[in-house]
Amino acid sequence: MPILVTALLLVVLFVITLTVAAYSTYGERKVAAFLQDRIGPNRAGPFGLLQPLADGAKMFMKEDFVPKTANRKLFFLGPAIAMTTALLTGVVIPWGGTLTIGDLRIPLQGTDPEIGILYVFAMVSIGVYGIMLGGWASNNKFALLGAIRAASQMVSYELAMGLSIVALVMVTGTLSMNGIVQYQIEHGWGVLHQPLGFLLFLVCAFAETNRAPFDMPECETELVGGYHTEFSSMKLGFYLFAEYVNMFISSAVMATLYFGGYHVPGLAGTGWDPNLITLLGTAAMFAKTFFFIFFFMWIRWTLPRFRFDQLMNLGWKGLIPLAILNLLLTGGWAFIQPRLFP
């Protein structure tokens, strides 16, 4: 029975992830339109709400073209890896507390391994292969340059991201995603303990998801379309879609690690039905996640793109030293605090 419940939960999570990603494309256009004082998509359905469906249908109808000089197997494998690794990450994110139906206790989380945060990190680090292999297999200069940029950018920013997570883990004392949320429920949200760490994580999340101002791998002013120049039809759709899935997942990770996840201050003391509190918590989790998705779009349509050398300078000479400083401060505080306030 619990296996069936988990399977059902994962299917629901899968559907929600895809829906959110699809409507993020709509949201992106509406946010862009709002920021540029335009109206945005409004033809397909009321307020243009059917636009993602129309886009998806259009993608399916396009010719699935494979260049003659491309490496066919890797050309197929690239988008598949990008999409798969993007979807795999959501499993360990705690989307809510525990629902109790009769005797059945259902935690709203796919699984809670004790190394949850490392799992997220591992999936992010595998995700770069989708872009690298796809870009290389296209046998196109622009695609190759995009792929190489993606690889060097992601490896560079993974370091600062990892160091900022290490500092957070030093505070919470656990690597489990749910454990981190539990710590925040007891001791206050992570952003209060790790303000600098949050800022570093936020910047690195932009770089890891290839979002502007760090969208160098697909910088259209320099590289035509970057790593997906040669891709068409649903293969291109997978790449674009994987980017939105990644954005959704990294927003959820930020909400979980630094903004209390499904925690709503003061809700536990109201004495309401526990199931209601769990559902409200899940709603809060999604609200926090959607805020970060909006933040991603806000930044994209506000800041111009970096140059590639600026991006590398920021990563290696700016973020990594700051992350190490943050680590030292966190460690020093953990050492001094019990001695100052016993």
Binding site: L118, I126, V155
Partner: peptide
Amino acid sequence: IIVYTGAIMVLFLF
């Protein structure tokens, strides 16, 4: 996975 698959092999491929 993080060190070997995610970092070292990326550099190899690179």
